[in-house]
């Protein structure tokens, strides 16, 4: 039976991990390579590096980190953040990543997804989508958008780019469908409303995306405890869950989360 994947995400800035320095067992918790090996040993099903470097000029540092990390990992490895072109994708893959997550560039130039998927295969092209809820009184006020009921009222989901700084005005559910149709092999769904709050994932949004998109959905943003992760899977229908803080600050280990999921009937890889 296919296991639901539990995936830690590391924010990497100028070659250092900027979140998740709470580990006392590690000699240098800011070292992405050491942390990656730690998570691999801990039972992570995959690992994500999100490059949050302010400037694109630091690319060589990221590539070096990707290369050194890939050398120690024997699980799938995804890299995202600041990927603008086929050239960037090729560089990241060449340095040992198995998948690249494309966000802003895919929104600005959707055919980048198709071109990349044709060149490298859908299996390594992931569409990463940041969203924020836009509440409306009535669906007629949001023509062409997917409007759903939430406990806070009716809303649709707007796509954001440039690290959540710029609203695009396009419907995220429909964008996810299009990204998959263009050749993205997976979707990472993150929420600006829910990210960092540790109050749970946006399961209403996740469920809609999962229902409509034929490729696997990786849920992101909002995990504060194992129950939130369970809900992203059972309510949000996610195929994989990504989390950062919950693991980095040692609140829960990956193994603890997986055991919790297993006791609630979710198939997970426990070894």
């Amino acid at each position: 039976m296919l296991a639901t994947r539990v995936i830690p995400c590391l924010d990497v800035k100028d070659g250092r991990v900027v979140k998740g320095v709470g580990f006392q067992r590690l000699r240098d918790a800011g070292d992405p390579v050491e942390l990656a090996a730690y998570y691999d040993a801990e039972g992570a099903d995959e690992l994500v590096f999100l490059d949050v470097s302010a400037s694109h000029e630091r690319r060589d540092i990221l590539l070096d980190v990707v290369k050194r990390t890939a050398e120690v990992l024997f699980i799938p490895f995804m890299v995202g953040g600041g990927i603008r072109s086929i050239h960037d994708i090729r560089e990241i893959l060449y340095h040992g990543a198995d998948k690249v997550a494309i966000n802003t560039a895919a929104v600005e130039e959707p055919f980048l997804i198709r071109e990349a998927a044709e060149m490298f295969g859908s299996q390594c092209i992931v569409a990463s989508i940041d969203v924020k809820r836009v509440y409306v009184e009535d669906e007629r006020l949001a023509p062409g958008k997917v409007v759903l009921d939430t406990p806070s009222g009716k809303c649709w989901w707007d796509v954001y780019i440039y690290g959540g700084r710029e609203a695009v005005g396009i419907d995220a559910v429909q964008w996810a469908e299009m990204a998959a149709a263009l050749g993205a092999g997976e979707i990472v769904a993150s929420s600006l409303d829910f990210d960092g709050a540790q109050q749970g994932y946006d399961t209403i949004y996740l469920r809609e995306v999962s229902k409509r998109v034929a490729v696997p959905l990786i849920a992101s943003s909002g995990a504060g405890n194992p129950q939130h992760i369970l809900e992203a899977i059972t309510v949000g229908k996610a195929d994989a869950v990504l989390a950062a803080s919950i693991f980095h600050y040692g609140t829960y280990t990956i193994h603890q989360v997986k055991e919790y999921l297993a006791t609630h009937g979710v198939p997970v890889r426990l070894e």
Partner: peptide, 28 residues
Amino acid sequence: KIPQIGWNTLTIVDAGNLLIRGVPDGSY
């Protein structure tokens, strides 16, 4: 969902094959 992406289990039908020596049934 297609593609199948992720960890799935092996149901071993030919346990004598040398390629899976020491690999338990049900491994991911």
